[in-house]
Amino acid sequence: MRLPAFDYYSPTSIENAIQIKNEFGGSAVILAGGTDLIVNLKNRVIAPSVVISLKNLRELRKIDLAGDSLVIGAGASLSQVACNENVQRHFPILVDAIKHIGAPSIQRHRGSIGGNLCLNPRCLFYNQSFFWRKGKGSCLRTGGKTCLALEKAESCQAICSADTAPVIVALSGQLTIVGRAGSRSCSAQEFFTGKGETPFNLGPDEILTEIRIPIPWAPISSSYKRLSYRSAIDFPVINAACVATFEQEKIFRFRLVVSAAGPAPITLKDLESTFIGREPSQELFSEAEQAAVRAVEGIVVDNSIASKQYRVKMAGVMARRVTQSALTASRR
């Protein structure tokens, strides 16, 4: 499959990259590893006139401890993050999520952590070849007037399918975004807008540069699980991440995030207050399951290889499993 024509830039500084991004705005795309972008270009679901490669920006590949946070450069390759000593020590859940992405030896050396967060949300009617899509007509995201997955939808319902997204949200990650006006910080949850056409809180002149994850002051228990049809080179049907800290055997902080259900990861906010001060029990796991089902029911639409009913049910099952596994695992 041939790629469409585009101009190519490989800036040597972030300032330069932003200048180019600002000049071309929405018609320029950022190329990090390309494992998602090149496929989308081949399928003609995006048609940029300019591709800006980050290959010369070595400063985007650093992973360092800075104060009370771990700062991961958005351009760091997934294997680089998974093999990093500090990541392994503080956030084994992130290593676990990365191991689920693509295939180990290939996509991990090209794929980047920033690229995984910025993974183009996926839909059964969107991630198809041009030929395939021609038969169905255009959807909201490809210039049409209706969503092919949900007739009355006002915005694109594509699915956030990144493995690291729920994990970074659960770990309260902060993202640094640099643009013409300087740099700003945005929480990982706010980064996902929930709209398929503009899934990320990124201006036309902005680039995601860093992921900052606060180092927990107490040992955390965490768990990531995903359901997918294949164990390699596949996207999740549903995935979930749970992070908790304890104080004297009682839950002190709790966060449960379910993703691959809608255009953004879903944080089950209510549980964050109702679970505090309680001890892990079967009752608690069931509450997590019910809360997840309630939260995704109105969000999931029929646009994945699995049916809507199955995904709603599995959101509950995955929520229960991560909660149980995080709350009963040994703490580190």
Partner: peptide
Amino acid sequence: CAEGVCGACAVLMDQHPVRACLTLSME
């Protein structure tokens, strides 16, 4: 497949396997 699924185009780039179909020659 030309879209990164099958691995038939795998080559080593600086000792690491990459999918040639998903790698621009410029990279």
